[in-house]
Computed example of a mutant assay.
Amino acid sequence: MSVQLSSPSGLMQPVPYHHVAVASGSRHVYVAGQIGRDEAGRPVAPGDLRGQVAQALRNTARGLAGGGASFSDVVRLTFYVTDWSPERIDDFLAGVQDVAGQLALPQPLPPASLIGVASLFEPDVLVEVEATAVVD
């Protein structure tokens, strides 16, 4: 396995992600921000953070596969969420859980950041997901 995930003692716990990823592969796969739209560009789950997180992760999995990777190769996830507030964490995490089994998401997730933003490129887009993977 080219990626080892860990959470060294002394770092804040519990969190739904690992704090550290160590990768030994030489080929990197970068997936551009994926959103809650289908392959035709139609919005999925308008106004629903949970549904858009799930769809954005499905699209991220497709992007990873296109580069010969999967979530087991991911060393970093970045989530951008519009109008973020801590009260939205349950919907966000529910979206992750909705597809965790289907997409073989590591639990906890690889190192991740959730960044609140005022808006994304179109008003209906509530979340965008970027991924970095390393494969041998």
Rank of each mutant, 00 (worst) to 15 (best):
F79C: 08
R42Y: 12
A94V: 04
D124R: 06
P8K: 09
D48T: 04
A100C: 10
R37T: 06
V127Y: 00
V117W: 02
G67P: 11
A21C: 04
H18I: 00
D38Y: 13
R58Q: 13
D90G: 04
G33I: 00
G67V: 12
S85N: 10
V81Y: 01
V3K: 01
R50Q: 13
E39Q: 08
G63I: 07
G41D: 02
L105Y: 10
V135W: 13
G47I: 09
F121Y: 09
G36A: 07
A118E: 03
T132Y: 07
R50A: 12
D83E: 09
A56R: 03
L49V: 07
T78G: 11
H28N: 04
A133Y: 03
D73N: 15
V22R: 07
D136Y: 08
V125F: 03
S2D: 10
E122W: 01
E122I: 04
Q107S: 15
Q97C: 11
L64C: 08
A45G: 11
S72H: 12
L105F: 10
V135T: 15
A112Y: 00
D48L: 03
I35S: 03
A112T: 05
T60L: 04
T132P: 00
F71H: 02
V29K: 13
V127A: 01
G25T: 08
A23D: 06
P106H: 05
G101D: 06
T132L: 09
G66N: 05
A112D: 00
L57K: 09
G41E: 06
L120E: 01
G116E: 04
D91S: 15
Y80F: 11
A56I: 04
D38F: 14
L105I: 08
S9Q: 13
S113M: 11
D83C: 06
E122G: 03
A104R: 13
A131N: 05
W84Y: 14
D91K: 14
F121N: 07
R42V: 15
I89Y: 12
D83W: 02
P110N: 15
R62T: 09
A32N: 13
T82Q: 01
G68P: 06
V81D: 00
A56G: 12
V31P: 00
P46R: 14
P46H: 11
G116V: 10
